[in-house]
């Protein structure tokens, strides 16, 4: 068992008007995660340090932050992953406006969600589903809405194209509905126009940071891009679809 030591943390303190990093020293014990260290600071040093958290089990998606610049869940980032002499920087996610300290306003994401047509079953649906039909969708249903993918996506983060692109989280939500064997709605026009799937350039950062290891690009966004190609860019595929496929 490693000896206990004091870790050095630099935590962002501030609000919408500005802020700065503040240094803290935190005693590290076996099994600690970064969220424990933040709770120590809150409990022992600065009770007004704002942090959003809930389950501490990597399932609620609340404690998203950037630890040494890596978008991560604080509850899933172990202190033993850092060397004892390393300074650990903790800052709020950078794609959304800061409310206070480590808490950001992610309400824009909920607005995006409302724009997606929900599950729409076919008329007289036979509610039997087979595993091979639902397996692809189940991967997307693991999403815990931590919005780390939204945070790291450069379209939203660097280029601030929230006016044009809904972000990877909502691309896979659409994918989970479009690939559903019992769904009858067509969301390709939404994806192509309002959702802005063409803004994604497949740099895969969303996949790299996903704490649920969802293959967001390979299994979600790229298949949706290909369906958009069928509909809007490939005349042969569109023709064949019209001739051979029953209307969805």
């Amino acid at each position: 068992m490693p000896e206990a030591y004091n870790a050095k943390l630099r935590v962002y303190r501030g609000d919408a008007s500005g802020g700065t990093f503040k240094d803290y020293t935190v005693p590290v014990e076996e099994g600690m995660v970064v969220l424990d260290a933040i709770h120590y600071i809150q409990r022992e040093v600065d009770p007004d340090l704002a942090v959003r958290w809930n389950c501490k089990a990597a399932k609620c998606g609340s404690c998203s932050a950037e630890v040494n610049g890596h978008p991560s869940l604080m509850c899933k980032t172990r202190m033993k992953g850092f060397s004892p002499d390393e300074t650990i920087t903790v800052q709020p996610i950078q794609s959304f406006p800061i409310i206070k300290d480590l808490v950001t306003d992610v309400s824009w994401n909920y607005e995006q969600n409302k724009r997606i047509q929900p599950f729409t079953p076919k008329k007289d649906t036979d509610w039997i589903m087979y595993q091979e039909d639902i397996e692809r969708v189940q991967e997307f249903r693991k999403c815990i809405e931590c919005f780390l993918c939204q945070n790291v996506c450069h379209v939203l983060r660097d280029n601030d194209r929230k006016d044009a692109f809904s972000g990877p989280r909502f691309m896979i939500r659409v994918a989970s509905l479009e690939m559903h064997p019992l769904d009858d709605a067509d969301r390709l026009e939404f994806l192509h126009k309002e959702g802005g799937i063409g803004y994604c350039n497949i740099t895969k950062c969303c996949t790299e940071v996903c704490p649920e290891s969802i293959h967001i690009t390979d299994n979600g966004i790229i298949p949706m891009k290909e369906r958009v190609v069928d509909e809007y860019y490939d005349p042969v595929a569109k023709f064949l679809k019209k001739v051979f496929s029953p209307k969805k």
Binding site: E66, P71, D158, Y199, T203
Partner: peptide, 29 residues
């Protein structure tokens, strides 16, 4: 696409690293 957008176009150069912002980003549209 992933490889050269990162390495040549720096959109973005790496995850969590600020990318090039010298134009209005249009992606693949």
């Amino acid at each position: 696409r992933k490889a050269y957008y990162r390495s040549y176009f720096m959109t973005p150069p790496a995850c969590g690293v600020s990318g090039y912002k010298g134009f209005q980003y249009q992606g693949e549209t």
